[in-house]
Amino acid sequence: MLTADDVLRVRFARTKYRDGYDQFEVDDLLDRVARTLRAREDAAPMVDAVTVAELDAARFAVRRFSEGYDQVQVDDLLAEVRAPLATPAVPRPPVAPASASAPAAASGDVPGLLPSKPSSAWRRLFGR
């Protein structure tokens, strides 16, 4: 399934002497798509989420004799993005609170690692 990072990593071929989509319009929509997918991945609410209907209705200005994005590549990506947006978001299960029986970690210690030993300045400098 396509993720927000996948959308952000996409690079389109640029056109100059043939028709291409306006780069700023495409980038704006894809930024919103990436934010929408990220919110869905994190099960976070989003105010300006991109819908499938909005994706289907998206039209970009066509640039001729100036740089634009390859139309076929952009259309293919939008078709691929449609699937994750069409599936309902799966709510993340609630995180269980830490049990009272678990020992509290000492300050500065990382859970799961051995506690750090206090050492002298000599040991910190020379690793002995």
Score class of each variant (00 low, 15 high):
Met1Glu: 11
Leu2Ser: 07
Thr3Met: 08
Ala4Tyr: 09
Asp6Ala: 09
Val7Asn: 03
Leu8Tyr: 00
Arg9Pro: 02
Phe12Gln: 06
Ala13Arg: 15
Ala13Ile: 06
Thr15Phe: 04
Lys16Ile: 11
Lys16Gly: 08
Lys16Ser: 02
Arg18His: 08
Asp19Ser: 09
Gly20Asp: 10
Gly20Ala: 09
Gly20Thr: 04
Tyr21Pro: 14
Gln23Ile: 15
Phe24Pro: 10
Phe24Lys: 13
Phe24Leu: 13
Val26Arg: 03
Val26Gln: 11
Val26Lys: 06
Val26Phe: 10
Asp27Leu: 10
Asp28Gln: 13
Leu29Val: 08
Leu29Tyr: 01
Val33Phe: 00
Val33Leu: 11
Val33Ala: 05
Val33Cys: 09
Ala34Trp: 08
Ala34Ile: 04
Thr36Trp: 01
Thr36Lys: 06
Ala39Glu: 09
Arg40Asn: 13
Glu41Trp: 02
Glu41Arg: 00
Ala44Gln: 14
Ala44Lys: 13
Ala44Ile: 00
Pro45Arg: 11
Pro45Tyr: 00
Met46Pro: 07
Val47Gly: 09
Asp48Asn: 14
Asp48Tyr: 00
Ala49Phe: 00
Ala49Gln: 10
Thr51Trp: 01
Val52Met: 07
Val52Ile: 05
Asp56His: 07
Asp56Trp: 00
Asp56Arg: 12
Ala57Val: 01
Ala61Leu: 04
Ala61Arg: 14
Val62Phe: 00
Arg63Asp: 06
Arg64Cys: 01
Arg64Ser: 07
Arg64Gln: 11
Phe65Ile: 02
Phe65Ala: 09
Asp70Asn: 15
Gln71Arg: 15
Gln71Lys: 15
Val72Gly: 14
Leu78Cys: 08
Val81Leu: 12
Arg82Ala: 11
Arg82Pro: 14
Ala83Thr: 13
Pro84Leu: 02
Pro84Ile: 04
Leu85Ala: 05
Leu85Trp: 07
Ala86Ser: 15
Ala86Pro: 10
Thr87Tyr: 00
Thr87Gln: 15
Ala89Asn: 10
Pro91Lys: 01
Pro93Arg: 13
Pro93Ile: 05
Pro94Lys: 08
Pro94His: 04
Pro97Thr: 08
Pro97Ile: 01
Ser99His: 07
Ser99Asn: 07
Ala100Asp: 13
Ala100Glu: 11
Ala100Leu: 02
Ser101Asn: 08
Ala102Tyr: 02
Pro103Ile: 07
Ser107Arg: 12
Ser107Asn: 09
Gly108Ala: 01
Gly108Thr: 02
Asp109Thr: 15
Asp109Ser: 15
Asp109Lys: 01
Asp109Met: 07
Val110Asn: 01
Pro111Thr: 08
Gly112Phe: 04
Leu113Glu: 14
Leu114Val: 10
Pro115Leu: 00
Ser116Asp: 04
Lys117Glu: 14
Ala121Glu: 13
Ala121Pro: 02
Trp122Val: 15
Arg124Phe: 04
Leu125Tyr: 03
Leu125Asp: 05
Leu125Gln: 11
Phe126Thr: 15
